[in-house]
Measured scan of single mutants.
Amino acid sequence: MSIQHFRVALIPFFAAFCLPVFAHPETLVKVKDAEDQLGARVGYIELDLNSGKILESFRPEERFPMMSTFKVLLCGAVLSRVDAGQEQLGRRIHYSQNDLVEYSPVTEKHLTDGMTVRELCSAAITMSDNTAANLLLTTIGGPKELTAFLHNMGDHVTRLDRWEPELNEAIPNDERDTTMPAAMATTLRKLLTGELLTLASRQQLIDWMEADKVAGPLLRSALPAGWFIADKSGAGERGSRGIIAALGPDGKPSRIVVIYTTGSQATMDERNRQIAEIGASLIKHW
């Protein structure tokens, strides 16, 4: 067993022997301040990774656009098919120029040779490549099948209805392509620590998230040296922004954090800054 596999296998073990965790309302004060600064709703939840206990939450059962955070769930569904012998990570998928959609920095470079399922998941999570996500959605049967996968996990809230990039439209009061912070946090925890996926697939999923290259201005910008984070960000229309993450000190994750916002007129930089400040408060009061 590799060191990384050992780390993920012992996530519940280490967490069980940690000192009790206590909620700190100071972080919620910052979440509410972010709402004021952005002029928009902000949803927040913080779960203990081992027990699933909610440590703090704000608007945990209000719907927010998922945006690209759905790509972690998508690759979880792909990995479940791999575990069941219905898919192979090494299978190569070929596609054409007509398949390319807006923001496809990886797939646009491989029109000639195609990409493997493993490479597509890596591109979808680490670079948020939209064509990679659409190609992977095709392998599982489309958005409705991802929703069905989530329902089978016990998540009857999260739903995907459309493809990239239309799913980022974020129309107010439109339930399409949305989740709730509580539902997303619980589902992410199941994917990373539950028995739904094999140990190898859980490790692969967290490795992809740990290698995320496009979430630097968010929670990662607030992390002290030595902290662990595996995350996936999302951005959408109407001032929408979000991030889902597993993080913790001492090089291992111990909490799940989900943050979503929508309806702001603020710039992307300002949305990023507010999420980073929430992260800084979380870490300060850990």
Rank of each mutant, 00 (worst) to 15 (best):
H24V: 07
E26D: 02
T27K: 14
T27V: 14
T27W: 11
T27A: 10
K30G: 12
V31C: 03
D36T: 08
Q37A: 04
Q37H: 06
L38T: 10
Y44E: 01
Y44W: 10
Y44I: 10
I45K: 01
E46Y: 15
D48W: 09
D48F: 05
D48M: 02
I54M: 09
L55P: 04
E56A: 04
E56M: 08
F58T: 07
P60D: 08
E61N: 05
E62Y: 02
P65E: 08
M66S: 13
M67A: 12
M67G: 11
S68H: 00
S68Q: 00
F70M: 13
V72L: 08
L73R: 00
L73N: 10
L74W: 00
A77K: 02
V78M: 14
S80I: 14
V82G: 08
A84I: 12
A84C: 09
G85P: 07
Q86G: 08
Q86T: 14
E87P: 10
L89S: 11
R92N: 13
R92C: 13
S96E: 12
Q97V: 08
Q97K: 14
D99G: 02
D99E: 04
D99T: 03
L100H: 07
V101Q: 04
V101N: 06
E102A: 11
P105N: 07
V106F: 15
T107K: 01
T107S: 08
E108R: 14
H110E: 10
H110Q: 14
H110K: 13
T116M: 12
V117S: 09
R118N: 14
R118F: 07
L120W: 01
S122G: 13
T126N: 08
S128T: 01
S128K: 00
N130R: 00
A132F: 00
A132C: 15
L136K: 00
L137A: 09
T139V: 09
I140P: 01
I140K: 11
P143E: 10
P143M: 07
K144P: 03
E145I: 06
E145Q: 11
E145S: 14
L146C: 13
L146R: 01
F149Q: 09
L150K: 01
H151M: 09
G154E: 13
D155A: 02
D155C: 06
V157Y: 15
T158S: 06
T158L: 02
L160T: 12
R162A: 10
R162S: 12
W163A: 06
W163E: 09
E166P: 13
E166H: 15
E169N: 05
E169I: 04
I171Y: 15
I171Q: 15
D177K: 00
T178I: 01
T179F: 00
M180Q: 03
M180F: 05
A183P: 07
A183G: 09
M184G: 02
A185H: 01
T187N: 03
L188T: 06
L188H: 06
R189T: 06
R189I: 05
K190W: 09
L191V: 13
L191S: 04
L192T: 13
L192M: 07
L192D: 01
T193M: 08
G194V: 07
G194M: 08
E195W: 03
L197E: 07
L197Q: 02
T198Y: 12
L199V: 12
R202P: 03
Q203T: 02
Q204G: 04
L205A: 07
I206H: 08
I206E: 08
I206V: 13
W208R: 01
E210T: 14
E210N: 15
A211H: 15
D212M: 01
K213Q: 10
V214L: 10
V214M: 11
A215P: 12
A215T: 11
L218E: 06
R220V: 11
R220A: 08
S221A: 11
A222E: 08
L223S: 05
A225G: 08
I229P: 00
A230E: 01
S233L: 10
A235E: 14
E237C: 14
R238I: 14
R238A: 09
R238W: 04
R238K: 02
G239F: 15
G239N: 02
S240D: 08
R241G: 10
I244E: 01
I244A: 14
A246V: 09
L247M: 15
P253H: 03
S254D: 14
R255L: 06
R255D: 01
I256T: 03
I256K: 00
V257I: 13
G263R: 09
Q265K: 06
Q265G: 08
R271S: 09
N272C: 05
N272P: 04
R273V: 05
R273Q: 11
Q274C: 07
A276K: 14
A276M: 07
G279N: 03
A280F: 15
K284V: 11
K284D: 09
K284P: 07
W286S: 06
